[in-house]
């Protein structure tokens, strides 16, 4: 159990199975977000009396969120790089940066939503806004879950070191993090960019 040979971090049968299972879970998540995108696109033009995407979105601020989340993916990848080298301190550091960036993203998203609601664009204003909040909200909750999850794993990493039990968990969490990031790229393109154009 306590082996720290970098070559065998993911060798246990259970680790292999966990990683495989996680890929299928990501498959399920793809369907979840696919359906949410579908709903959004279906009602995009149903803006009722409320504002449409052009009036609502402020691309500059969204760019900030996007950059933050994308860099968190980068730091996450760095963390995994150091994990595979069994460098505990560096792994901890880069995962911490990832968490902080994730929290920053959530903060910006909450701010964005409050602004919109202040402008009279609440969840029940129109079908478009309902779908928008549902899609973005589901993504935001995923980010929040990811942050909490990685934080818990970091405590384990700190207490127990890098071994065959902690490394696969962190690896899986990183897969999850990258997946959330990819979803955000989709959201940025489909919701914000296309909404603005």
């Amino acid at each position: 159990m306590e082996t720290t040979d970098p070559k065998h971090l993911y060798d246990t049968q259970q680790a292999q199975m966990n990683i495989l299972a996680f890929w299928f879970l990501i498959g399920a998540e793809v369907v979840v977000f696919g359906c949410l995108f579908g709903i959004y696109l279906a009602v995009k033009s149903f803006t009722g009396d409320g504002p449409g995407p052009e009036e609502l979105f402020k691309l500059n601020e969204i760019m900030v969120s996007t950059v933050i989340l994308l860099s968190s993916s980068f730091t996450c990848a760095l963390a995994i790089y150091f994990l595979n080298l069994t460098k505990k301190a560096w792994t901890l550091l880069f995962f911490l940066i990832t968490i902080v960036l994730g929290l920053g993203f959530i903060g910006l998203e909450i701010r964005e939503f409050t602004l919109y609601v202040g402008e009279g664009a609440s969840i029940s204003t129109s079908a478009f806004l309902g779908a928008f909040y549902m899609l973005l909200g589901t993504h935001g909750v995923h980010v929040l879950f990811g942050v909490t999850w990685i934080a818990l794993l970091l405590v384990q990493l700190w207490l127990r070191g890098i071994n065959q039990e902690t490394a696969p968990k962190l690896f899986i969490a990183s897969l999850y993090w990258h997946f959330i990031d990819v979803v955000w790229v989709m959201i940025f393109t489909v919701v914000y960019l296309i909404g603005k154009v």
Binding site: A42, F46, G48, I123, A127, A131
Partner: peptide, 17 residues
């Protein structure tokens, strides 16, 4: 759930589909 608990109008006959 959103429609029933949080007041979205995506599935309604008037504003949604």
């Amino acid at each position: 759930t959103f429609e029933r608990l949080f007041g979205t109008v995506i599935l309604t006959g008037g504003e949604g589909n």
